[in-house]
Amino acid sequence: MPTFDEFIEGVCRYVELLQEQDRPAKSLQFPNDPEQLREGLPVQIGVNANQGIILRGDTFAELGNPEMGSASHLLWTTDSALVSDGKMTLIGPDIPESEGGSLPFGQVLLVSGPKLTPADHERLKGSQHVGDHIDGYMLRSTSEHIWARVSKEAGAKGFDFETLGRALMSLVKSKVPSVSAMEIIFITSSKKDVKGLDLIVSETRSIGREMIKETWKERGFDIDCEVDCASCHDQEVCDDIRDIVHSTSSDEESDELRVVDNPVDQVNAESVP
């Protein structure tokens, strides 16, 4: 199974190259504990922290409008040497300097953990979509790229890439405990710089898809259901189906069953004329 390691190295080299070319840059070091990361932030972090949506007129700054340039990737590795925990690098202007403007936006989350496996990929990928977890920050509902708004209220409180970086580190580490180190790169210098980043890592999309596919295969077909049968209103239907499965497979194979999915739906499906 291919890994992201060479792409992580590629991204780091690319960032160094941009720095060498005198792009405005800053590098910050954060604590590694998810709780400590949230300390002192100007906005709330967590489920439902962002109660509403951010309207066009309430936007302090926009990040990643496709016309400006946009790219977002998450790369993981088991090699702790490739990720510098708590480090955030920003190439280009910061949010407070961009009031009323629209910045190109490249975001790369690099994570490592000795126990990470391809089975974690889907969850890690999903953890980038922070939904309503950061007050004053709204990821727009787009598919492949990242496009976000920072609210005027958050802007007034000093929301910057340090805020976003710390929030993302805290959220990802909390959501996926097997992440032991995380580094973030933001690029806002130009559309060209963001596009360059995207080109370096575009191949990782197909690697990610392959990882998800392999994980499904590994997981296999499981009769077990996470819901407690005693409290499940589908229990009766489920039991009936289990009976059918047992009776049809008992004389052919072992007791090892590979069923059952949602019984409610099966009933619905069967009722179609």
């Binding site: 509403g52 949506i53 066009r56 709204m138 727009r140 509902s141």
Partner: peptide, 9 residues
């Protein structure tokens, strides 16, 4: 797309 964001409310 601008409009769709409103439906998230």
């Amino acid at each position: 797309q601008d409009y769709n964001e409103l439906r998230r409310n």
